[in-house]
Design a binder for these strands. Structure first.
Length: 615
RNA sequence: GUCCCGGUAGCUCAGCUGGAUAGAGCAGCGGCCUUCUAAGCCGCAGGUCGAUGGUUCGAAUCCAUCCCGGGACGCCA
């Protein structure tokens, strides 16, 4: 894959090339030199680990081989002669001039991140809200993880489609519509809470308890209870009939029903956009492509599978069987209706073919793993896993874990409801504003005397950063414990810690009073260990972005930024900038600060986290 | 029953896809603000990496078998 072109400003790239050449010269093999960061700064900056595995292949002595490589490798102007250690490690210490040169090369508009050559699009399925339902913590993940993945691809210069696959079609929506029409509420004055209640009422009404009825008969409960259950089943039947009739009118384009349908979508989406805007996630109306969009593409999906001989009838339904597993994929019900698998197949073909996506990513709850495996395999069988020009697409279900409460159970309110996303965000922002306001009381605080509106903006940014960082900086596939108290402690490994480091840098740069041009004209130089550590870490930024694009592991961004903030804070502690005695030291440190600030801000922007100048 | 995903410090989590003495953050203990923001920095303490075998120079990482927890399994999405 071409995504693995290495950043020219990363020392690893140069070391890899030089050692590869040395290996070839010594053994005539083209092998991975296994350049890694040093595990211990006392050993050096990098290490080459290839000698051991290479010696195994050639049945040679690893230390002898390491010695031969050290003698052969050309590191003039790059690093000192590598030192052999242990069973055959080669420890590498870069020359200061080389680090400065790499910094200089990286310190450009793109921060060393080179635009990708891939011209096909990346498609990210994110957010995934259902019409008439409030967003809850699960949507938090689907939204911000998807947004971050999209931002990473955009950062690499790729065409990105954010696809909000709304649940806006089918019987559940019709049931809600029917229930609302029966209760004659004014759809123009509908709040999302009303709508959500109607949705749940409709679900309850529609739940025909046939199983319960049968069980009741079998166990011989009293006549009264039996009659009650029967009545419930009958009214459920009526509600279903009403819903089915409404669905028919909706599908038939009945203007009145369609207008009502549009209104409940608008009502739902108003709050969705409010939340995505609060979250600083780029999800808007232009990204909507819901189930209704694919309604005319469902029958052709089934037909395509049938005519390709990939589908068969089973108990009246149409299924796609797989060679390697028992469970088939159901694509048409015995009553002729379609299922979400049918819609997903239509959407997948749309994404690879119509949107020309060579990378299609579904940011959806991990519990749907089996479902997506089936859909992806079925799509591959019929050849829908290809772009318009026939390129094979990489299709991934990025399944995220469940958000848990402190009791390690899925996060619920005391009454057993899902937490609404809005409440969660409101509370986080409230805590952020309270904290920022409290600190601004201190006359020595940089935020002292700041305008109220600005203080609020900073506080909200802090609260949102806390939530987003806590989510995105963990391994996505695992469940995680949502503990607001810990998140808004704003100490240690948190979003605000990163913002704080950024504000400190911004403060130095503001107090320096040097123009950007003045700073940019200074020479990069690294002398102190803290400067060196910071510089080396900055050079890793472009590779980190590539790694995230490849693995979709958003927590790499968080880990990188946390280390960056740590490096900077250590530098801040031991290396005075404005108070340094030497003018050229002041200038080079100022330049290092400016670069660190831009990388930190750029990295935070991949998470969609704002970086205030003061806090 | 079949399949999938987890198990690392008291708690919450990393561990760069096989490398050197397993790392952070909270919580605990001890230092550092007349000096660029203490939302910070420095240090101490804390571990049979679920268990047992195996693969090899080398395993938290790969393989096998168990134990524990969670999840998914045809006409909902």
């Amino acid at each position: 894959m071409s995504t693995d072109s290495r950043p020219p400003t990363d020392p690893t790239t140069i070391l890899d090339a030089r050692f590869r050449a040395a290996i070839h010269a010594v053994s005539a093999l083209d092998a991975d030199p296994q350049i890694r960061l040093s595990t211990n700064p006392n050993f050096g900056d990098y290490q080459a680990n290839a000698a051991m595995s290479l010696a195994k292949e050639t049945k040679g002595n690893p230390r002898d081989l390491a010695g031969a490589l050290a003698a052969k490798v050309d590191l003039a102007g790059i690093a000192e002669t590598p030192v052999i250690a242990g069973p055959g490690f080669l420890n590498i210490r870069l020359e200061r001039s080389f680090i400065s040169a790499m910094l200089q090369a990286m310190d450009n508009a793109s921060l060393g991140v080179e635009p990708t050559k891939e011209t096909h699009a990346a498609v990210v399925d994110l957010c995934g809200v259902n019409v008439a339902k409030q967003m809850h913590v699960g949507h938090l993940r689907a939204t911000i993880i998807g947004d971050t993945i999209a931002r990473v691809f955009e950062r690499l210069g790729r065409k990105v489609w954010r696809e909000n696959h709304l649940g806006d079609w089918g019987l559940p929506i019709a049931m809600t519509l029917a229930a609302l029409r029966r209760s004659r509420v004014d759809l123009d004055r509908l709040s999302l809470t009303d709508l959500n209640d109607a949705y749940r009422r409709a679900q309850l009404e529609g739940r025909s308890d046939d199983a319960g009825l049968a069980a009741a008969r079998a166990t011989g409960v009293g006549a009264h209870r039996l009659a009650e259950l029967q009545a419930q089943a009958e009214s459920a039947g009526e509600a279903i009939q009403d819903a089915k009739a409404t669905l028919l009118r909706l599908q038939g384009g009945d203007p009145e029903v369609v207008a009502a349908w549009q209104k409940i979508i608008d009502c739902t989406m108003r709050e969705v956009y409010a939340s995505t805007s609060t979250l600083n996630a780029k999800v808007g109306a232009e990204h909507n492509r819901g189930e209704s969009f694919f309604r005319d593409r469902l029958a052709p999906v089934v037909e395509a599978f049938q005519s390709a001989g990939l589908a068969k009838e089973d108990q009246g339904a149409i299924v796609v069987p797989f060679a390697d597993r028992e469970r088939p994929l159901l694509i048409r019900k015995s009553d002729g209706g379609f299922l979400y698998a049918t819609t997903d197949l239509a959407a997948l073909r749309f994404r690879t073919h119509d949107l020309d996506g060579s990378r299609v990513i579904y940011v959806v709850d991990a519990r749907q793993r089996d479902h997506f495996k089936d859909v992806f395999d079925a799509a591959a069988m019929i050849g829908w896993d290809r772009t318009r020009d026939g390129n094979k697409s990489e299709i991934t279900h990025l399944g995220f874990g469940t958000v848990l409460g402190k009791d390690k159970r899925p996060l619920k309110t005391r009454s057993g409801e899902n937490f609404t996303l809005k409440d969660l965000l409101d509370e986080a922002m409230e805590r952020g504003v309270a904290e920022v306001t409290r600190r601004a009381q201190d006359p020595n605080a940089p935020t002292h005397g700041m305008r109220h509106a600005e203080l609020e903006w900073v506080g909200r940014a802090v609260g949102i950063a806390a939530i987003k960082y806590a989510d995105l900086s963990n391994d996505l596939t695992k469940d995680y414990v949502f503990d607001l108290d810990r998140m808004v402690a704003f100490e240690g490994d948190t979003g605000p810690y990163l913002q704080y480091a950024h504000a400190r840098i911004a403060n130095i740069l503001a107090k320096a009073m040097d123009s950007a041009a003045q700073i940019a004209s200074a020479a990069h130089a690294v002398h102190e260990p803290a400067e060196r550590a910071l510089a080396l870490h900055l050079l890793r930024y472009p590779q980190m972005v590539l790694d995230v694009a490849r693995t979709l592991e958003t927590h790499r961004i968080g880990a990188y930024l946390r280390t960056l903030a740590e490096c900077f804070n250590a530098f801040y502690q031991s290396c005075p900038v404005l108070k340094s005695e030497d003018a050229s030291v002041r200038q080079s440190r100022l330049r290092l600060c400016a670069l660190a600030r831009r990388v930190l801000q750029d990295g935070l922007s991949l998470y969609g986290i704002d970086a205030p100048e003061r806090m």
